[in-house]
Design a protein around this nucleic acid. Structure first.
Length: 151
DNA sequence: GCCAACGTTGGC
DNA sequence: GCCAACGTTGGC
């Protein structure tokens, strides 16, 4: 099983949105970066993902979700009403990928960005690299354990 | 709201 | 294929 970290603005979709409906999968849509999309394509059902809250008051890792449905064409790209619409995408040749995620757990407390920066063993994590904007990234087994151990 | 860093676009 | 201009991200 692979592990991942996905960023989200909690105003849009937070760990609480998952926790409030633990039996309902949520479409992870709107990723519009090729590198991040390629990681979405690599996700398998059952893979676990850290949910990272960004661009908000309390920045950090808030919980864990898992892949419920693996990669399929992001429906938002075909929807002219969606902010994620992409006129260049066709059903024959879709450009963007979605997955469905489902709740696993909320961390006992938020693991803040500052805390993550203070840990050794996370030097390879894209999240912590200067200027990184990648919104979907792999997390190694040891990185995962290092972070989980904080809780 | 600022702004550094980054990815994408498009003219050449 | 280069690269300047532009739009976006995201911490502060």
């Amino acid at each position: 099983m692979a592990r991942w970290l996905v960023k989200t603005e909690p105003d849009e979709c937070s760990i609480d949105d998952f926790a409030e409906n633990p039996d309902r999968a949520i479409v992870w849509e709107g990723v519009r970066n090729y590198q991040a999309r390629n990681f979405l394509r690599d996700m398998a059902v059952g893979d676990e993902c850290f949910i990272y809250h960004s661009s908000c008051k309390h920045i950090g890792i808030a919980g864990i979700v898992k892949v419920f449905r693996s990669a399929y064409p992001d429906p938002a790209q075909f929807d002219p009403e969606s902010p994620y619409h992409d006129a260049r995408s066709t059903t024959d040749n879709p450009r963007w990928t979605a997955v469905d995620m489902i709740f696993v757990s909320k961390l006992p407390r938020l693991i803040t960005l500052d805390e993550l920066r203070g840990l050794s063993g996370l030097e390879g994590l894209s999240l912590l690299k200067r200027g990184s904007r990648l919104s979907v990234m792999p997390v190694s087994e040891s990185e995962w354990e290092t972070i989980v151990a904080l809780c």
